[in-house]
Design a binder for these strands. Structure first.
Lengths: 130, 130
DNA sequence: TTCATTTTTGTAATGATTACAATATAAATA
DNA sequence: TATTTATATTGTAATCATTACAAAAATGAA
């Protein structure tokens, strides 16, 4: 499903800005920060403001079409994909990797109503282990 | 193992301040914020400063005897327990619950060197579902 | 067009965290 | 003990991501 349909399905008017942000999120799996989104789109949308990026991400996440990750406590990152995956942050190169995640076993959560799940590892990626 | 032994084992001099912080972390499973630790200890240590709490938590976490959680992006929380458990944040009452965690299944992480793991759910606790 | 609504923008405020220099405390040495 | 050295703690000021807010711009309706 494309960016436009996604927005319309969630009753979000598909303005240029919103479309560009959504398309960007769907085009990369790096889970960019606000800064990165802003820097990437500024050439295309010269009047763009960071506040707009913040507002838009908040809107998207309230509608459940993206997830806002607070991976390393520093900046928020946007995750436009909703397949079940975990995140691996390499403490060497600071890159963020996705990894597939099957069923989570062993969670005893009787009575709790789980809405969102996040699995987050840190360590060293292949390159940085040398 | 008590707070004092833990510190000594990690070559951290067991000053009053450090002991009190460590003991507090071991006495509650609420994963308190810096603010909460500070407020709790101020009556006991009237000269305590927040910077010291930050410094001490950083020291502890570098030595691997606690974990610093960035649960909801707002404040850091300190987790003094190192059994394998996940965290559940109730979006209603904002309370943080621990839950036991068995083996994590389905993680394809060939070649990655995993150092830390965090599993973090949100939703509604029993009380807040009404 | 004109009016009302929504979206975007820029600036200023907030609030957690860190940098840093000064002070206090403890350990080591003479 | 007195003196020196290293370590711990403190307070203030700076940093930086995020939010609040009000104005401006764009869009849609009448």
């Amino acid at each position: 499903m494309g960016a436009k349909e996604t927005l319309i399905n969630h009753n979000i008017r598909p303005s240029i800005t919103r479309l560009e942000i959504m398309e960007y999120l769907l085009s990369v799996r790096t889970h960019p920060t606000v800064e990165e989104i802003y820097d990437y789109l500024l050439p295309k949308i010269p009047t763009l403001s960071k506040t707009t990026v913040y507002n838009t991400l908040k809107l998207f996440s309230e509608e459940g079409i993206i997830k806002l990750l607070t991976i390393d406590g520093a900046q928020v990152r946007a995750d436009g994909f909703n397949d079940m995956h975990g995140h691996f942050l390499c403490t060497g190169c600071r890159k963020l990797f996705d990894f597939p995640l099957g069923e989570l076993a062993g969670e005893c959560l009787d009575g709790f109503d789980v809405k969102t799940r996040e699995v987050y590892y840190t360590g060293l990626c292949k390159n940085c282990q040398k």
